[in-house]
Design a protein around this nucleic acid. Structure first.
Lengths: 104, 104
DNA sequence: TTTTCATATTATGATATTATAATATATTAA
DNA sequence: TTAATATATTATAATATCATAATATGAAAA
């Protein structure tokens, strides 16, 4: 903390603060956090996501829509199921960091 | 991603998801993010924090109150000024990670 | 071709967050 | 004392989020 590199970065982060905050917001809800963590393991169907986070079908669908609009995830259909995966690498990095910080 | 260690951790994070999400929520607003980033550099007075994040005096005070209730920060008075600093080490680690991810 | 299954969409009320204005408190200076 | 400064608190209206129910869509199975 407090390195020269980081001091320079504070200004950088200021420019990005809205974008970064918007991304963090997606992770800042217990069920959305679980959704993204389960997807960080591997692509998941909506049904699998429902089971992983315990939210209702409708709620999950709305959460996923929000994440898609933010550009964090993408979906593909395979028969009746729709599979979602994380496409924003920053999300993967962030989740890895969270494991490091909270599960060590 | 997907290591054995991390798979075990998904369950761990599930137990913590509310706590982790609550912490991330504090960072998930542009001005609150800037507040915490400036405090990550060093202890700051409320006036300095106002300048750093551009929010109104009242808004800053309310943001700080929320962070204090979450146990993220503590304050001390020195004359007319009140200084705040981050006391939750996880916040410092998280901010360091954010710099690594978004400012590289 | 109807039914079933998986998912999405829409609508809505309840709750939470945000921004702002107004007022209050504590400390120092005059 | 009184005034000025720094910060906190309270109130409130505007907006956003959340949870839930109801309905719709699209693909496969019967």
């Amino acid at each position: 903390m407090k390195s020269q590199a980081q001091k320079k970065s504070l200004k950088e982060l200021k420019h990005q603060s809205e974008e970064v905050a918007a991304l963090l917001k997606q992770l800042s809800h217990p069920q959305r956090l679980l959704i993204l963590c389960s997807m960080a393991e591997s692509e998941k169907s909506v049904g699998e996501i429902e089971a992983a986070c315990g939210a209702s079908q409708s709620a999950v669908s709305q959460f996923l829509k929000g994440m898609r609009l933010e550009g964090l995830i993408e979906s593909r259909r395979e028969g009746k199921q729709i599979y979602y995966k994380i496409v924003d690498k920053r999300v993967l990095e962030l989740i890895r960091s969270l494991y490091g910080i909270f599960c060590k």
